[in-house]
Design a protein around this nucleic acid. Structure first.
Lengths: 189, 189
DNA sequence: ACCTGAACACCGTTCAAGT
DNA sequence: ACCTGAACACCGTTCAAGT
């Protein structure tokens, strides 16, 4: 005798993401997720293999949302690639502030967690496009990697509270962005 | 009636660090640590308040070791700050490869974990010294932050396996290092 | 076909009882 | 003064039994 579905994978992942932000990684328990979606813990195993699988789904959903944000920030169609780059990294930074725990999850995935290559590609595509305009086709990859490394490092240091003096952070951000654009632009010696 | 001490805080932290690297964050259990030092789990609470406290001690010990490594790399007394900077970041990179789990712990600390400011300061002092030589006193802080952000971001991307093509990583590293040195050096326009 | 309670192994932590 | 077994609450996961 069929039973009506009382929840869905989408709802489960959404609950898990919210829980991750509100209660941290260790607060993301199967029981807490189940309670949020109005079901008992064992029922989750109908849609999800185990907790690790759910965490991977949370990471992927977060990565995809980050990609969409960055993509949206890149479609303003600027003339100046520096302005575009500034908007890209600001979009990522805003996202990291909204979902710090999720951002950390995709920044420093655990031993096992493997991010979906397709999601990674989608998230980096806009950066590559702008990097090509700034640094030229021959150096796209190196330039994009340098830029991405700085941006993710800056944001993670910010999240970790590595900067003690609040007001200075914004200046360090502007400084780094400006210097990097100079260093990566085509006519760089 | 006194009982002879069967272990020590130092031994416990060392066991916890090894366990973190070999079994990951979730493998770092009180029981596993206790077993390693030849004691039962409840005995650990004589030296450590709880698991979170132990994790914080692990993070601090790791940060201090990283600081010592970076400091050692900085004391070659070069003339060229660019070479010194290259050695600094290579030291950090080597360390991250030896202790990836520990590195991730100090890079992206959990919600609660607070790193000891003194340890953070000791680890960043060498970077500040070299940054001052490269970028000048007025811009030390901004330069050091830009450089540190790039280095930590690069290493964490490397650890996360964000670079798919092995051979290219070294070139991207050299590229970034070279471009950053150019961008941060005193005569930068 | 989905949901559940019961059960199992495991974990962190406390505490009274041992030496 | 340190160590331990027993106990408790909690967690992930499985599974037979319900509908």
């Amino acid at each position: 005798m069929p039973t009506p579905e009382r929840t869905s994978l989408e709802e489960i992942v959404r609950a898990a993401r919210d829980l991750l932000e509100s209660s941290g990684h260790e607060g993301l328990t199967m029981q807490a997720v189940a309670h949020r979606v109005g079901v008992r813990a064992p029922s989750l195993y109908k849609r999800v293999r185990n907790r690790g699988d759910l965490v991977a789904l949370v990471a992927d959903a977060t990565l995809r949302e980050l990609g969409a944000r960055v993509e949206a920030a890149a479609t303003h169609a600027d003339d100046d690639p520096r302005l575009a780059l500034a908007r890209l990294v600001r979009a990522g930074r805003d996202f990291a502030r909204e979902r710090p725990a999720g951002f950390r999850l995709i920044l420093a995935p655990g031993t096992d967690l493997r991010l979906d290559p397709a999601s990674l590609e989608a998230a980096s595509a806009p950066v590559l496009r702008v990097a090509a305009r700034l640094a030229g086709e021959e150096r796209v990859l190196d330039a994009a990697r340098t830029f991405t490394a700085w941006a993710t490092g800056f944001v993670s240091m910010e999240l970790a509270g590595a900067f003690r003096l609040g007001g200075e952070v914004e200046r360090a951000f502007e400084f780094g962005l400006d210097r990097l654009c100079h260093a990566l632009a085509i006519p760089a010696s």
